[in-house]
Write a protein that binds this DNA or RNA. Structure first.
Length: 463
DNA sequence: AGAACCGGGGTCTGCCATGGTA
DNA sequence: TACCATGGCAGACCCCGGTTCT
């Protein structure tokens, strides 16, 4: 056995602790980043050097048996040892045209009628181990899968392999979402085709499943997926938006149609309540601006809207414009988080002698200020204020807070070096792309040189 | 031409709880 | 009663460059 590192999508700290307990092998590093900051959690997974995993028989579970031949095969009541030393049977199965041929059966595979509570299927665990799956992790996540008599791990693996997933990726997928191996090929094929309606290539889908296996495998209802796609299309969302939705928030498509519909209706109601004239456009704009909205609960979004309304006390039309515009981006925040951030920001601004109007102005023009972690925001403000920039200037040009602390610090240092005066020249220079910033600072430095030269020339000689 | 404004791109999972069902 | 399907939750930015204005 050897170890390999698998790239994992983000996991919450709570998870990391538990994951750590169940993962054998070297330490696990976690670098979180949400919404644009990179989130990367490499986790070591046990793997085997062998290509193994092919030596088991696997009909689909009874519920989803789609190939009659599989049933026929099982009616042979083949003893377990044969399922493990397999060349012959594999060949036989192939000749029987069983694309979904392989399955794991318990060591006492001749007892095909499952008892009510199955013991763990050791044969399955062995197979998964050989496939490089982290069985410990998988078992902890969905123990029920390991008590199933019939699973489709080989079929699923073959399917994914056929779509371009590497062995490592497949192992990682099953480790994190073991229920994947209960899906039939027919189901997967159909689901894949539905996804392909939105994506150009298999590789794009593989990348998403690798990132989020649950999004693809959690639901067994392809009809619901199909209905979701037509529903979202009917809202007027463009292909580009659908693509972004499915690639960034794939869970949206595993939601029940009803849940998505409820959220859309909720958004439309909000619009109507605020006197908006085109509720459908409003919903479309909000979703398009915040593609994560549909994977949040209505309760969360509603609470955020209520809180924002209470914080800002805007007129209906102003509030509507905010929600339909930049405000949409923060509607998916956790309620407590938004509230805490608002309170911290308010306290800080009040301590800097700002008025309520200033606080309001800042949030309306730059709602993302509420997205920032308290320590990040505090750090950014400290940097700026330390250089003599005033809170008033920040309220006027809040987008300077949009840049990373490191970027702001670096730019402030650079500006200090060339003698930039924020009171005289303003802080706009901080709110520009790197390229533009460099151009601006070069020009500024050159003009300073000229000024110094002129001063020298104008000054009377020392003696 | 340069400044200011503003839109948009990238990017959200894995766990837990719960109701339904076999 | 075990398992499945699904809802809900926590967590927490940065940057670029096109367009419009002056």
């Amino acid at each position: 056995m050897s170890n390999f590192t698998s790239s994992f999508p983000p996991q919450r700290q709570k998870l990391n602790v538990s994951a750590l307990c169940c993962i054998s092998g070297p330490s696990l590093s976690t670098t979180h980043a949400v919404r644009g900051t990179r989130r990367h959690t490499p986790i070591k997974i046990c793997s085997s050097d062998s290509d193994g995993g092919g030596d088991t028989v696997q009909p689909p579970s009874l519920k989803m048996a789609v190939v009659l031949g599989v049933r026929a095969f099982f009616s042979l009541r083949r003893p377990a040892p044969l399922q493990h030393s397999f060349g012959l049977i594999k060949g036989q199965l192939r000749s029987m045209c069983l694309s979904e041929r392989l399955c794991s059966a318990p060591p006492n595979g001749d007892k095909l009628l499952p008892p009510k509570v199955n013991p763990e299927n050791e044969s399955l665990m062995e197979t998964l181990s050989l496939m490089g799956v982290d069985v410990k992790m998988a078992r902890q996540r969905q123990p029920g899968v390991f008590r199933k008599v019939f699973t489709n791990e080989q079929g699923v693996a073959e399917f994914l392999k056929g779509k371009g997933a590497s062995r490592k990726i497949i192992a990682s997928i099953i480790s994190r979402y073991p229920r994947a191996i209960t899906r039939s090929i027919a189901h997967l094929e159909q689901r894949w085709q539905l996804w392909r309606n939105i994506f150009q290539t298999d590789a794009e889908i593989v990348a998403i499943i690798e990132r989020s296996p649950e999004s693809f495998f959690r639901s067994s209802d392809n009809k619901n997926l199909e209905e979701n796609i037509s529903f979202l299309t009917s809202l007027g969302l463009k292909t580009k938006d659908l693509h972004r939705l499915l690639s960034s928030a794939p869970r949206t498509f595993s939601n029940s149609l009803e849940l998505n519909r409820q959220m859309v209706e909720f958004l439309e109601d909000i619009c109507a309540e605020l006197g908006g004239e085109d509720p459908q456009q409003f919903a479309q704009d909000v979703i398009s601006r915040n593609i994560y909205i549909l994977i949040q609960s209505i309760k969360r979004v509603k609470t955020n809207i209520d809180n924002l309304r209470a914080f800002l006390k805007l007129s209906n039309s102003e509030f509507l414009a905010l929600l339909q515009g930049p405000g949409a981006e923060i509607l998916d925040l956790s309620n407590e988080y938004m509230k805490n951030n608002f309170n911290t920001l308010r306290q800080r601004m009040v301590s800097l002698s700002c008025q309520e109007e200033d606080i309001k102005k800042l949030i309306i023009s730059f709602p993302m200020v509420l997205y920032m972690g308290q320590s990040t925001l505090s750090l950014k403000l400290d940097c700026l204020l330390k250089e003599g920039i005033t809170m008033k200037q920040i309220v006027e040009k809040p987008r300077v807070l949009d840049f990373s602390t490191q970027n702001i610090t670096g730019r402030l240092e650079e500006l200090k070096r060339v003698g930039y005066d924020f009171q005289k020249n303003g802080i706009n220079i901080l709110d520009s792309s790197q390229k533009r910033f460099v151009t601006k600072i070069e020009k500024f430095a050159a003009s300073m040189q000229v000024m110094k030269k002129n001063k020298k020339l104008a000054a009377p000689p020392d003696n």
